[in-house]
Design a binder for these strands. Structure first.
Lengths: 142, 142
DNA sequence: TAAAACAATTATCAATTGACAACTAATTAA
DNA sequence: TTAATTAGTTGTCAATTGATAATTGTTTTA
C-alpha cells in the first residue's frame, strides 16, 4: 500500500465530505442565529451535555468568545446550563426543550436531503456504505 | 437496511470527519492569510483552474466578496488569473508558483499528521480504509 | 445592431468573529 | 488558611466576513 497515494485519496475524500455536508446545511437559516451559534447547537445536539471548555476546545473558540455566544443562545432560550454539584465552577450545558425542538426540525430537513441522495441505491449498496462508514469510523476517525 | 439508522450513522460519521480534519488544519496559520482566503487556496489546490463564479458557488461566498478576497490573494502573489480567450468575461484562476510552494508545505504538514494517524495500522487495515473511502466516494459523495 | 444577460469589480456599511485584559467565584495544594 | 489553579464572565477594540447597490466590459439573443 502506497501511503502517499492513500493521503491523496484522503484529501480528495475529505474535500468531498465537506462539499456535500456544506451543501446540505447551506440553506439552513435560523432566525437570529449566527454560524458559530449554529455550530454550538450542532455540537450540543451530538454531544450534550458538554462544558463550556469542551465547546471552546472542540469548536476552536476562545473561552471568552464561547461564553459570549453561549450567552446569546441562552437568552434565546435554546440552551441552558446546569451547575455541576460536584464542582460548582463547571456547568453542564444542554439544549432546552425549545432548542431540542429546533434541532429536530433541522435534522429532519437534513435527513430528507440524505434520503434523497440515497434513494436510488440498492439494498446491497446501502450495506456497503454502512460498512464503509463503520470501517473509517473505527479505524481512522476514532 | 434501516434508513433512519443509516442517517444517524451518517451524522456521527460526518461529525467525526469534521472533527479530525479541523484538528489537523487547526494550527496551520499562514501569515496575512485569513480563514476564507485559506479556504480559497485549498479549493484551488484541489480543483484548479477555476473561475471566480466557481469559487463563489462552492465556498458559498457572494461574487463581490469572493472577488475581494481573491484580489488580496493576488496582491500577495499567491494566485493569478488568466483570461479565457474564448470568453473574456471569465478568468481561469490558479495558484502562482509561490502559492503552489506554500500549499505544498501545508499539505506536507497535513500528510505528516495523516501518516501519524495511520502508522499503527496493518497493511490489511490500510487496504480496508482505501476500499471504504472508495465506496463512499463513488456511491455517496459523488 | 440594440437590448438583455453574464462575469466580475468597486465601494460602502453592518454584523460577526477574534483577541486580549481584567475580573469573579470555586476548588485544590502548600 | 493562604496561595495557586481552574472554570467561566465581562468588556472592549480590531479584523474579518456578509450584504447590497452601482458599475464596467463582454457576449448572446432578438
Amino acid at each position: 500500500m502506497n501511503k502517499g497515494q492513500l493521503f491523496q485519496q484522503f484529501v480528495r475524500f475529505t474535500a468531498s465530505v465537506h462539499q456535500v455536508t456544506n451543501d446540505m446545511t447551506k440553506e439552513i437559516k435560523i432566525e437570529n442565529i449566527t454560524n458559530v451559534q449554529y455550530k454550538i447547537l450542532e455540537f450540543l445536539t451530538v454531544s450534550q451535555p458538554v462544558t463550556l471548555s469542551e465547546i471552546s476546545e472542540c469548536l476552536h473558540l476562545s473561552l471568552p468568545n464561547a461564553s459570549r455566544e453561549l450567552k446569546k443562545l441562552m437568552q434565546s432560550q435554546l440552551c441552558e446550563k446546569i451547575v455541576d454539584p460536584n464542582d460548582r465552577r463547571k456547568y453542564d450545558i444542554r439544549l432546552t426543550e425549545n432548542g431540542t425542538a429546533l434541532m429536530n426540525e433541522v435534522f429532519q430537513e437534513l435527513e430528507f436531503k440524505f434520503q434523497e441522495q440515497i434513494k436510488h441505491l440498492t439494498e446491497s449498496e446501502l450495506k456497503e456504505i454502512e460498512g464503509a462508514m463503520n470501517i473509517l469510523q473505527t479505524k481512522f476517525f476514532a
